[in-house]
Computed example of a mutant assay.
Amino acid sequence: MSIDITKLEPEQVLQLRKQFESELDHFTTSLNALSVALNRYKECIANINQVSDKNAEGKEILVPLSSSLYVPGKVKDNDKFLVDVGTGYYVEKNAKDSIEFYNSRIQQLNKDYQQVTSIINEKSQTLQRVDQVLREKAHQVEKNQAAQAQAQK
């Protein structure tokens, strides 16, 4: 259903603008989260490539216990990785399968990223149109007030 926003009262147009701004903020936040996830998966692939290198076996590394706590360790088997497949489940995979898993996730996130970007563009264009109508309505109100002031003289 389409609404001709030029027929709405200024207060209604302003409310519509607030709604579109809120939606735009929501989608922008979602886009940022997708970007963070994409970077995390790309980092996983880079780490797998680094550890699965034939020179990496026996190499000392720092193993994260939390986001800010690490312990020293050594690479024992550089072709076995525990991959987080979601909701706290981990699956042991070799380097090739781990990279394929992360690449498939990256492909899906790229599709989602493009969809959200498209939605953001549409919402931005609509918001610009709403702003244009608001300016026109404000100009019309000023014109009417000036005419009323002129008529009272």
Rank of each mutant, 00 (worst) to 15 (best):
M1G: 14
M1F: 13
S2N: 15
I5T: 01
I5V: 07
T6M: 10
L8D: 00
E9H: 14
E9L: 08
P10R: 02
Q12T: 02
V13W: 09
L14Q: 01
Q15E: 03
L16T: 00
Q19E: 05
F20R: 00
F20K: 04
E21T: 02
E21Y: 01
D25G: 05
H26G: 01
F27N: 05
T29K: 04
T29D: 04
L31T: 03
N32I: 02
N32T: 06
A33R: 12
L34T: 03
V36L: 13
A37M: 11
L38N: 00
N39V: 03
R40H: 07
R40C: 05
E43R: 11
I45K: 10
A46Y: 14
N47W: 08
I48R: 02
N49W: 13
N49F: 14
Q50T: 15
V51L: 13
S52W: 09
N55D: 15
A56N: 11
E57H: 04
E57I: 11
G58I: 05
E60S: 12
E60H: 09
I61L: 07
I61W: 00
L62G: 05
L65N: 04
L65S: 06
S67F: 11
L69I: 13
L69W: 15
Y70I: 14
Y70A: 12
Y70M: 15
V71G: 01
V71I: 12
P72F: 06
G73N: 05
V75S: 05
V75A: 06
D77N: 08
N78K: 07
D79Q: 15
K80P: 07
F81G: 05
L82R: 08
V83D: 09
D84F: 08
D84I: 12
D84K: 00
G86F: 04
G86R: 13
G86A: 07
T87A: 15
G88I: 11
Y89V: 15
Y90G: 08
E92A: 12
K93E: 14
N94I: 04
D97E: 14
D97H: 09
S98G: 09
S98K: 07
I99A: 04
F101P: 01
F101R: 06
Y102W: 12
N103H: 06
S104I: 03
S104N: 07
R105L: 15
R105D: 09
I106E: 02
Q107F: 09
Q107R: 03
Q107L: 05
Q108K: 10
L109C: 02
N110K: 00
K111G: 02
K111D: 06
D112K: 00
Q114M: 01
Q115I: 04
T117R: 10
S118M: 06
I119G: 04
I119C: 03
I119Y: 10
I119A: 07
N121Y: 04
N121W: 04
E122D: 14
K123N: 08
K123E: 14
S124H: 01
S124M: 00
L127Y: 04
L127M: 02
R129Y: 06
D131E: 01
V133F: 03
E136T: 12
K137L: 07
H139I: 14
H139P: 04
H139D: 14
Q140T: 05
Q140F: 11
Q140L: 10
V141P: 00
E142W: 02
E142T: 10
N144T: 06
Q145R: 13
Q145G: 12
A146M: 13
A147D: 14
A147Q: 10
A147E: 15
Q148K: 14
A149M: 03
A149F: 13
Q150I: 11
A151V: 02
Q152F: 10
